[in-house]
Write a protein that binds this DNA or RNA. Structure first.
Lengths: 352, 352
DNA sequence: GTTAGCACTCTGCTTTATAGAGTGCTAATA
DNA sequence: TATTAGCACTCTATAAAGCAGAGTGCTAAC
């Protein structure tokens, strides 16, 4: 038995680990050999179980808070569990219906995002986050310039049927309403239908050409377009709901830890940065405890999934909760919500 | 002494109450007769102080957590304190400068509100709230309609130089761009410069007239205007910052209480409703403990002030913290912030 | 009216005792 | 050789007991 240390685990050890973690997730208390011995799937005596547990502890998969206290999973233990041991549980019909009906209802983008975030938090009783669709990836439908006072111009940017942005830019000189009209006409005919990223790229290209050719009219157009497309920094990039749900969990009941967590939620940019990493990965991705690399989430897990509009990944959503969460339910739930949110945002699937 | 019960308090008792509350606010622990006897302003023996404290307790101004524990102020005690005993402390120059410079900087309305809220929370190390200016009270500068698909129309509403709203409305029939142009021209010439409330009233009046005279063109105009002006329900009406600051206070360290408090913050509408009550009152208003009548705030105090643009009250700001807060500093601070926020939002004081 | 003195009460902390849970090790068993 | 029963041991959690300290209310003296 001692020689086995560090070697691959056999079937029985894995089954035992699975059983232990399931039990711990359910009860929230360190699991001892006695309770596990009653699991009919194992059918082992407490003594044998203790031997196996000692092996698992040597491998760093479980850990004993103190001598007389059963075992709890470590991060590595959870990792192994979600990667290869987990039996995902199909969603209940009622939940499925709720998600479907909530997201299908007529909403603009922001409302849909809000609904999704609230669904995530309400149904899991944890915290839900949804990032807004990356602006560069949606396409330009229509742009409009309205003169305000002096050199200030209001830009209205319609990205698809549902979504309208507005912002104020400061131009280098004063433009007349008809000039502005001309400029927007030009941009609309040239670029509408293309993605904002593509438009931005094209505009920068045009800028060079216009400068070379000393084409003032063209220069006005592209400079204006550039100003209009430049990112606004302080835009709210994600919607978080159900923060207070996390206050109920005993593993997060430490007030300092909670403060860090809630500070993180109100800062947002760190959360966004973390989620942005998932933009590339398709499907569900999980961060357990310190795996997120973000200290306030050390005692939390994130179950994330990117979501796509028309097969293009545009955003990420996630459920945040204590490491001890019902992964087998949360994972399929996050997966489905991502899928349905993507569908709900797709202009093609919307009634005109 | 016994006959005095229920009668007006003499000078000395009030001075003692003041001293006691100041001490309690400073230390956060029940104040006993021994410590108060060392206050040179009182110059009384512990025994005498105990007698006076017994009177104050009979009057419900202070309260003893248990037999051997000094006294703490009750809500009535705090009330008397802030109403008649408090010596407000002038702001420090550095704070004054910070507020001034932060608010004077060029911002649009939303940014100014955010800055004010953050100032309130940062400088008090408690929670800051600022309601957005009541929309009815600002005046219409410009309105514009852009056709989207079918019967959907994008409304751009410019209320003053800094502020732009946009929303989508559904019209009864399809309008051509030129029709929309005509309609907006008409509304702009007729109503711009008037307050939104006045415009709304006038529109409803016109609606009747147009219906009577069967004037279809006019009917189109006013119906469109009405749709454009109707309130959007789910608009975010206030900005809260520094929620997590409240996690540091021992009197709020109960996790259930905190949960209630944070739920209240994320719901917002109850907070807004509470603050709306202060719209009528000029100057600083204070709610201590249960006085707010809103259960989650039972262990908190609110120091509120309305703020005005051009002598017209348009919104409210507040600091929320534990009942045991440094009122003498918070009050002048809230007062000043309200004044400077109002000035910062006044278009007349802004550079064109 | 004010104050010193004193018995009394209540908290908060430390100490001690006890029951219970769970372990690791050893020796017996299949 | 793998499994199991048995047992001494460790650690926690909880309650009970003891004790110092803070503060009070009351009485009697000033």
């Amino acid at each position: 038995m001692v020689e086995k240390k560090g070697q691959a685990l056999n079937e029985r050890s894995l089954l035992l680990l699975k059983s232990l973690i399931e039990r711990y997730i359910h009860d929230g208390q360190p699991v001892g050999s006695r309770v596990l011995s009653k699991d009919p799937a194992l059918n082992l005596s407490p003594a044998t179980i203790r031997n196996v547990m000692a092996d698992l502890e040597d491998l760093g998969l479980i850990h004993s808070p103190h001598t007389s206290a059963g075992r709890v999973p470590t991060v590595s233990g959870y990792r192994l569990f979600v990667d290869s041991l987990l039996t995902v549980k199909p969603l209940e019909i009622s939940e499925l219906n709720l998600i479907q009906s909530s997201l299908v209802a007529k909403h603009d983008i922001n409302q849909s995002i809000g609904v999704a975030s609230k669904l995530l938090s309400d149904l899991t009783r944890m915290t839900g986050v949804v990032t807004l669709p990356k602006r560069e990836l949606v396409s330009l439908r229509h742009i409009e310039f309205l003169p305000l006072s002096n050199t200030r111009v209001l830009v209205i940017l319609v990205t698809n049927e549902q979504e309208v942005h507005n912002k104020i830019i400061h131009t280098s000189r004063e433009f007349s309403p008809s000039e502005l009209q001309q400029i927007s006409n030009y941009i609309n005919t040239m670029y509408s239908g293309r993605s904002l990223a593509a438009v931005k790229k094209a505009v920068i290209e045009e800028l060079k050409v216009a400068q070379e050719r000393m084409n003032q009219a063209m220069l006005d157009v592209v400079q204006m377009a550039k100003l209009a497309l430049d990112q606004d920094e302080n835009s709210e990039d994600c919607v978080i709901s159900g923060e207070t749900n996390l206050m109920g969990f005993s593993e997060l009941s430490d007030i300092d830890r909670l403060k860090q967590l809630f500070d993180a939620f109100s800062q947002k940019h760190n959360v966004i940065h973390l989620l942005d990493q998932c933009l590339n990965a398709e499907g569900v991705q999980i961060f357990i405890g310190e795996e997120s690399g973000y200290q306030p989430f050390n005692h939390c897990s994130l179950v994330t999934s990117s979501y796509s509009i028309d097969d293009e990944v545009v955003g990420v959503l996630a459920v945040i909760g204590p490491t001890r969460m019902a992964y087998e339910k949360v994972i399929p739930f996050v997966e489905l919500t991502a899928k349905l949110l993507g569908a709900a945002l797709n202009p093609k699937t919307l009634a005109p």
